[in-house]
């Protein structure tokens, strides 16, 4: 280690090792289980059409919206019975992967 470097520690099997931590390790995200009520973009693309409105009741299998990506019009279907709590996008929006499109309740 350089003289003025602040040592970092890594815990492996209850032993604490003095070392440098990699950027990748420091910036890793904590795991969170997927919430079925939050509909995320599974692929980056463009929202072509939204079939539902806020407050509307929906049934499992209903079409929610079309996410156009890689020259394919992907129809996102509802995974459960419920109500649309909020819609976070408008048709025409370009979205990266993993963005909240709408929330159910």
């Amino acid at each position: 280690m350089e003289k003025d470097e602040k040592p970092e520690y890594l815990n492996i099997n209850s032993s604490l090792y003095q070392t440098r931590l990699s950027k990748k390790f420091r910036e890793r995200k904590n795991y969170a289980p997927a919430d079925p009520k939050i509909i995320l973009s599974f692929i980056p693309g463009t929202v072509l059409e939204i079939f539902v409105k806020e407050g509307q009741g929906v049934k499992k299998g209903d079409n929610l919206l079309i996410l156009d990506a890689m020259k394919m019009q992907n129809r996102l279907k509802c995974s459960m019975d419920g109500k649309i709590k909020s819609i976070k996008v408008q048709s025409g929006d370009k979205v990266p992967k993993g963005v909240v499109l709408l929330e159910l309740e």
Partner: peptide, 12 residues
């Protein structure tokens, strides 16, 4: 390399 990440094996 104990200098970096205690020298662990990982994916990379």
């Amino acid at each position: 390399q104990p200098y970096e990440m205690a020298g662990v094996l990982d994916v990379d």
